[in-house]
């Protein structure tokens, strides 16, 4: 699959990443290289083969929806770049 510069910029936007001009060029080359290599999966015969979504047997694991208090809010907030009154602080959105 051939990747265009526009496509790469679209993907970067979806990923919430900004690429500098020199990065665009090198990432385009890398992505193309890797995708050319990855294309080999399309040679495998997979008609009717189920997809594997995890390494262990596929089943749902249920548990009771019980609240367990962590108990130390301050220590959780301590890693926030900005906080106020026990809340994470972000710029105004409306």
């Amino acid at each position: 699959m051939k990747v265009s510069k526009e496509e790469l910029l679209h993907i970067a936007k979806l990923s919430n990443l900004i690429l500098k001009e020199d990065e665009v060029e090198s990432y385009l080359l890398n992505l193309q290289d890797i995708l050319n290599f990855a294309d080999i999966v399309n040679e495998a015969s997979t008609e009717g083969v189920q997809e594997t979504i995890g390494a262990n047997s596929n089943y749902n694991v249920f548990r009771k929806d019980e609240i367990k208090e962590f108990g130390n809010r301050d220590i959780l907030l301590q890693n926030a770049p900005e906080q106020e009154d026990g809340m994470f602080k972000i710029p105004k959105v409306i």
Binding site: E7, I11, L14, S15, I18, Y27
Partner: peptide, 19 residues
């Protein structure tokens, strides 16, 4: 994200988002 992640991490996020 752009300043915090290194080149290889960004490369893999982009490849992953692409596929």
């Amino acid at each position: 994200r752009s300043e915090g992640f290194g080149a290889e991490v960004k490369r893999r996020i982009i490849l992953g988002t692409y596929v």
